Each structure stands twice: as C-alpha cells, then as structure tokens.
Amino acid sequence: MFTGIVETVGSIIDLKNDKDNYEVTIQVEDKADFLSDCQIGDSISCSGICLTVIEFDSNKNWFKVGISIETLRRTTIEKMWTSLENAHKINLERAMGSGNHRFGGHYVQGHVDTIAEVVEAVEEGDSVNFKYKLRDIENVKYIVEKGFITVDGASLTITNVDDDKGTFGVSMIKHTRDVLAKRPIGTFINVEVDVTGKMIAKQVDLYMKKYTK
C-alpha cells in the first residue's frame, strides 16, 4: 500500500527485457537513505507500479525488480522502459510504514489499471494543467471530477473528465512537477483509478443483474 506521495526518482541502469524473465535495475537519485531498511521481497512503487525487490545494494543505492507478463500488458513498461539509451526516469515511493506519519495522499495499491497518453500541457500561473487520453476508454467511468487518481505513482486531484473522448485532466503545482519525472506530450503514463469507485461499480452491477431480470 502506498500514498501516492513520490519520494524521489530513479534511472534504469540495467535491463533484461526478455518477456519470460523481464528484470529492471533502478538507480535511486537524491535520496541516500531510500534503501536503508529495504529487504528482499519488499514492494516499491515504480512510476505507480507495485514491484517486488529481488536484489538490492543499499550502499550503492540500487535495486532490481522482476516484472510479470500481466504487468507488461497493463503498464507503460514496454513503451517507455525499453532501453538504457532513453534515460527514462521513474517515480519512486516506498510502501507505507507503520510509524506515526501523516497520510498525505490517498490509498494507492500500485495496481495499474491502464495507461494514458500525455496530450496537453497548459501553463496557468505557477501551475500546469495536463490532459491525458486513456488507452482503455472503459476506465473513464471510474474517473470523477475532484476525485483521486494516480498518475505515474503520484496522487493527484482530477480537474475535468470527458467521458466521450476518454480524457481527464489534472493540475500540478511547481513543487509537484519538480519532484516528479518529466513526461512530455506524446509520452505515456500509468493510471490507477480510485479502488473505491471500482468496488462500488462492481456492487451496483451485481445488484442490477440480480434484481432487474
């Protein structure tokens, strides 16, 4: 479980992109203690994808994760994590701890629902308004204005939704943009919708099927 408050970014330093055994090694940047309490089997949110640590070096500040075929289908990995030359940056967040910390984002599972293309970025004062177009438009039914959404691991507030076009928007202040890895127009991001909305939709659907026959 995560909060959607990105801690730092990392870079891919090694890649084994065999679908039967897809592994990625990530170098953590600008946070020397990120892996200080890391254990094999821990979960780390990598641009919104909950991935399992299979190897790490806390002194050199890198970790390796294994990636399943299902994860490849759902996420931006095959589009964006395909080579070492593209210097793709990854948003990183450790799983929630049990200490006395304020909960700043929303409940994020790291279970990506789909991907979306960055189609617009419009400056407004110190903020930038981004628009994204969903690959799988059926997910738009779970996206509501002023609700939660996770974009590449970041907990954000939805500012607008177009159900017909399958697009939604968010607004990012400068601080958020400075923390997150940059995603130019034409690139893709991972999307996790609010799990509460999915649960409600499922229950309503089952109720309607049962009582409207």
Score class of each variant (00 low, 15 high):
86 N>S: 15
169 G>I: 13
100 N>H: 11
132 Y>C: 06
199 M>A: 13
200 I>N: 05
201 A>R: 10
14 D>F: 08
111 H>A: 14
208 M>V: 14
152 D>G: 06
11 S>E: 15
72 L>C: 09
82 T>G: 10
53 V>T: 13
179 V>N: 04
202 K>F: 08
139 N>W: 08
55 E>A: 14
90 I>H: 01
49 I>Y: 01
146 K>W: 00
74 R>T: 03
148 F>T: 14
42 D>R: 07
136 D>P: 03
152 D>H: 07
18 D>Y: 00
24 V>G: 02
191 V>S: 03
77 I>S: 10
171 S>G: 09
200 I>H: 05
27 Q>E: 11
85 E>V: 10
43 S>K: 05
178 D>V: 10
165 K>I: 11
132 Y>P: 02
50 C>Q: 06
83 S>V: 06
50 C>A: 13
147 G>I: 04
30 D>Q: 12
127 S>T: 14
111 H>E: 11
122 V>H: 07
64 K>A: 05
9 V>P: 00
100 N>D: 09
67 I>W: 00
17 N>G: 03
10 G>F: 05
174 K>M: 12
198 K>M: 05
200 I>V: 15
9 V>R: 10
18 D>T: 09
52 T>F: 05
24 V>P: 00
185 I>L: 06
125 G>R: 14
135 R>A: 09
212 T>F: 11
35 L>C: 08
71 T>D: 00
202 K>P: 04
73 R>I: 03
63 F>N: 07
152 D>Q: 10
107 Y>I: 15
87 A>W: 08
165 K>D: 15
182 K>W: 05
200 I>A: 09
161 V>A: 08
205 D>W: 04
182 K>I: 11
25 T>C: 06
209 K>Y: 06
163 D>L: 12
147 G>E: 04
108 V>Y: 01
6 V>N: 02
79 K>Y: 12
68 S>D: 09
150 T>H: 03
42 D>M: 09
142 Y>Q: 12
25 T>M: 06
147 G>N: 07
85 E>G: 10
47 S>N: 09
126 D>Q: 15
212 T>L: 14
61 N>Y: 05
147 G>C: 03
174 K>R: 15
